[in-house]
Design a protein around this nucleic acid. Structure first.
Lengths: 266, 266
DNA sequence: CGTGCTATATGAGGTAGGTCACACAGACCT
DNA sequence: AGGTCTGTGTGACCTACCTCATATAGCACG
């Protein structure tokens, strides 16, 4: 039962960021401060703060570079910091003890994560792992809380953020329970398209089929077969480590279908 | 494809509560005010407020009785009120257009619901339907928001509540994606046991197998077969509209298993 | 340039759980 | 008593998806 199971996730750079931060994180230097500010401003969470407030917040922030495959925090850790992604992508996963994992969310630059454990002081509910090299903005719990205390309006923004998260969670729960694989895959691709290549003619998603399968809660093989079927229809192109979406519309069609009964899934 | 499908949910008392409130809701009369206060106090959301604050909050509240099968609000409705359950049970469901539904949560007396749409002013994300006759405490959006404004500490409590909801959602997502039917069923039963009959020797859960199947995202038949298997083991007893749990421990065993591979599910 | 390593591709076969069909039993209604 | 309704019990299928096994192709690095 509690046999020491082989960790399936090949241990890439499994270095806790806690040490990484301690060693290499630096106070944000004067120069890129304005850049940090615009990053934070992109988030609705901080969008309405005035310049002085943003500067104060940024003064708390440190930046850190982490290579791909690094675990930022693990389920059960104390939540000591809030993160914002300056560049790179992060996956939020819930590990099951037997090596499987459900990918909860994929985040990219501009996104904030790690706020829940930070806010309620309880342990992390999920793992956060970099899927590419990332540059992160880190705000320590203590600093963030004092900032919030002196800026009460931020509390309302936090509430909005949490509500948005809950809405998102509710949608995804619904999707996971009610929809079949083709529908979930189509929707996931569309989501990734929207997030990354902004309105390119043929948006390219950079993700392996293995990752994709974890996001869907399916197997790599099933994902592969479905992707190939769509490739045969010229709706997408598959290449190593990525997918080119040639017909967003077709995917949207499939994503909109009720996956009940004979949905024409090819 | 878009053929007009027969609405599966038999229309019970499909009366919107909006009219119900308008007609029959009453200002909470003086007498049971203290009772309302204790109800609200049970919620961590309001537990730390002092007497005067609670009284003010209660003065905003109205109560209303609704029969079983009533839709309190539907997905897409504007979120104009916050609800607390004084008695009865409510299910929060996300409907899929073809009549299937995923039951997101089952709530009972003491629980609060409807806070998300209320807080961010966006449409309801789910339906709320009474499964038994209910007595509800209703606080209108306007009243609640003014109350929060004049009691800033409540904002922090709200944040805690939302964090708890998110943790819960994350757990259930994980469960829905990773665990198989017996495990999910066992856990669901345990959850229902904990919520209802407080530490009875043989806790009885009052729920139909059909409802149960919707909570799990499974079919009634599958649920029935699993329950019968467990009944054969004397772990539970099945009777019309309810389940008696004879061995909480056994269910806990099953609920703890990793549902991967051959988990001995009988 | 061979030797791994990672990502993709695909077939064969198994199974959990869905679908459909029907039977039966208690509850309630007249 | 008989009819109707809701909830339960069960068998006969069916299929979407998983599991396992094996193949191939790009890429990285000595």
């Amino acid at each position: 039962m509690a046999k020491p199971r082989p960790s399936i996730s090949r241990a890439k750079t499994r270095v806790s960021i806690r040490s990484t931060i301690a060693e290499s994180a630096t106070r944000a230097p004067r120069r890129p401060a304005c850049e940090h500010i615009t990053l934070l401003q992109r988030q609705p969470l901080f969008g309405e703060l005035d310049q002085a407030q943003l500067e104060r917040l940024v003064s708390y922030a440190k930046t850190t570079d982490v290579p791909a495959g690094t675990t930022i925090f693990s389920k059960g850790d104390p939540g000591t910091a809030l993160f914002a992604i300056r560049s790179g992508t992060i996956k939020i996963t819930v590990p099951s003890a037997d090596g499987r994992e459900a990918v909860f969310n994929l985040l990219q630059d501009g996104d904030i994560f790690g706020e829940i454990a930070l806010l309620d002081g309880r342990p992390r509910t999920a793992d956060a792992v970099t899927t590419t090299a990332c540059n992160l903005l880190v705000i320590e719990r203590r600093d963030f809380l004092t900032f919030v205390e002196s800026n009460p309006k931020v509390a309302l923004k936090i509430i909005e953020l949490l509500c948005a998260r809950l809405r998102w969670a509710s949608e995804h729960f619904e999707e996971a329970v009610l929809e079949n694989l083709p529908v979930r895959l189509a929707r996931t691709l569309l989501r990734l398209v929207k997030g990354s290549e902004v309105s390119a003619k043929n948006p390219t998603i950079k993700i392996t089929q293995h990752e994709l399968s974890r996001v869907l809660g399916a197997t790599r093989e099933s994902v592969n077969r479905q992707l190939r079927a769509w490739e045969a229809h010229k709706w997408i192109e598959i290449d190593r480590g990525g997918i080119v979406v040639r017909s967003v519309d077709q995917l949207a069609m499939i994503g909109k279908q009720l996956s009940n009964h004979r949905s024409a899934d090819r």
